[in-house]
Amino acid sequence: MATEAAHGAEEGSSLVFHPMDQFIVKPLFGGTEVHWYTITNVTLWMAITVLAIIALMVLGTSGKKQVPSRGQSMAEMAYGFVYKMVEDVTGKDGLRYFPYIFTLFMFIVFANVLGLVPMSFTTTSHFAVTIVLALAVFLTVTILGFVLHGAQFLGLFWVSSAPLAVRPLLAMIEVISYFVRPVSHSIRLAGNMMAGHAVIKVFAGFAAIAAVSPVSILAIVGMYGLEILVAFIQAYVFTILTCVYLKDALHPAH
């Protein structure tokens, strides 16, 4: 029906869906060329992410109070949440990498939530961003594994508890699943973000038809609630999978 309506509509009418337009990278100060140094909406929203993190983690905790203020207790909650996650999953020796994991978590959670501000740009919906994040984790974990354990790290793929006959097969599966990790890690985050925003945009397109606009607005409200949940869950999932991979590097024994 949507296709029919869109097809029947005149060029430039309100019922043409542009669900992907919100993801276009545009230079902020004129021009159409996007060089690597150009200041774009990506730059703007990443800068806002940094400012929000500074506001929470630096300005919010500036009181250093024994009995925390609201901002400080939020910062402490975030700290305690990630700290406990790292400690639970990787053990005590994983805590050395806590600042790194906390950086990832804070960036992703703030980028996701700021992306839900109307008219904003969601940096984490771009594969360029999430692939860099996932590759950073993948390379860190792989290099760390080889540095800490040398060739023993390859034992991760050799399931010594399985019968000898099936071990080569299992090793193949393990290797494949190991190399699929950065792919699924990055596409999960970008896909979730993109899907949610595109769906909201499609519902918003329906709002142009007077008869269904109340339903569509209600649907947008519901989707917003879901998207806020998804924003946090995806940040959590990204972080906890990072911890799981890090645990493999620290304790490769199966």
């Binding site: 999960r188 896909g191 979730n192 999932v237 906890i240």
Partner: peptide, 19 residues
């Protein structure tokens, strides 16, 4: 935590189809 990891793995494949 295990619940969310499992859900993430299950959901990743759906995201692949979306992709």
């Amino acid at each position: 935590a295990t619940l969310f990891i499992g859900m993430a793995f299950a959901e990743a494949l759906g995201i692949f189809s979306f992709l």
